[in-house]
């Protein structure tokens, strides 16, 4: 059974009288432990698709099955819980809270899960070590470089021990060298820990770190391509 299964997913927005079809009729299955990249020009619906997979947005039609659960009709609170337990997010602009240090940022999801302080600290320390930031635990985002900030964001996702990491242009705001170290980190996490990764990018080089590339155009899957 695949971890993620999308059947006939559509998403449209109404903008005044105009209806915009962001996604139409998407069928996609991602197995446990896969590393999938979604590519496509801007406006092709990559981010919308990622948001739906991440339970941040609901599809207008179709079925979404995550780890055997029908997700699209769940309550708002239930979706929050699913995001919290299953899904780690890594964003292009990092989305760290500026007032909190690395530790504070990385422990946020565990706090919402209700994990006790000691256990939280332990797991966050491990996660920060895994991304190579053991010496930056008490630095605030403004005291960290772009690459370091993105690694804090990855540590935040790792501390959740998620089934799935969703990355939306994770290297978009970084120079290519830093970008490659981030991609190496993803590859390592995928290979060593078996975390499923779905990443959106428009950079072909970065896309080649994954196993499979899904190409979108105008809200539809144009073609799929296996890497290597």
């Amino acid at each position: 059974m695949p971890l993620i299964e999308l059947r006939g997913i559509t998403r449209w927005y109404r903008n005044g009288r105009v209806v915009i079809n962001a996604l139409s009729d998407i069928d996609l299955a991602v197995g446990k432990g896969e590393f999938v990249t979604i590519m496509g020009p801007s406006g092709s619906g990559k981010s919308t698709l990622l948001n739906i997979i991440g339970c941040l947005d609901r599809p207008s039609g179709g079925e979404y099955i995550l780890d055997g659960m029908r997700v699209e009709r769940l309550s708002d609170d239930k979706l929050s819980e699913i995001r919290n337990r299953y899904i780690g997010f890594v964003f292009q602009s990092f989305h760290l809270l500026p007032g909190l240090d690395a530790m504070g940022n990385a422990e946020l999801p565990l706090i919402y899960r209700g994990v006790g302080a000691a256990e939280r600290r332990r797991r966050v320390r491990q996660a920060l070590e895994a991304v190579g930031l053991s010496d930056r635990i008490h630095h605030k985002p403004s005291e960290l470089s772009g690459g370091e900030q993105q690694r804090v964001a990855i540590a935040r996702a790792l501390a959740q021990e998620p089934l799935l990491i969703l990355a939306d242009e994770p290297t978009g705001a970084l120079d290519s060298k830093t970008g490659r170290t981030i991609m190496e980190l993803f590859r390592k996490l995928n290979a060593e820990r078996g975390i499923t990764i779905i990443m959106v990018t428009h950079d072909r080089d970065m896309a080649r770190y994954g196993h499979r590339i899904v190409k979108l155009l105008d809200g539809r899957i144009k073609e799929e391509e296996l890497v290597g």
């Binding site: 941040l56 929050s80 995001r83 919290n84 989305h95 760290l96 946020l108 919402y112």
Partner: peptide
Amino acid sequence: TGEIGVRRALGAKRSD
């Protein structure tokens, strides 16, 4: 709003 979004993505419920 951005902060609210991040918190929601990380699993904060509306009640939180």
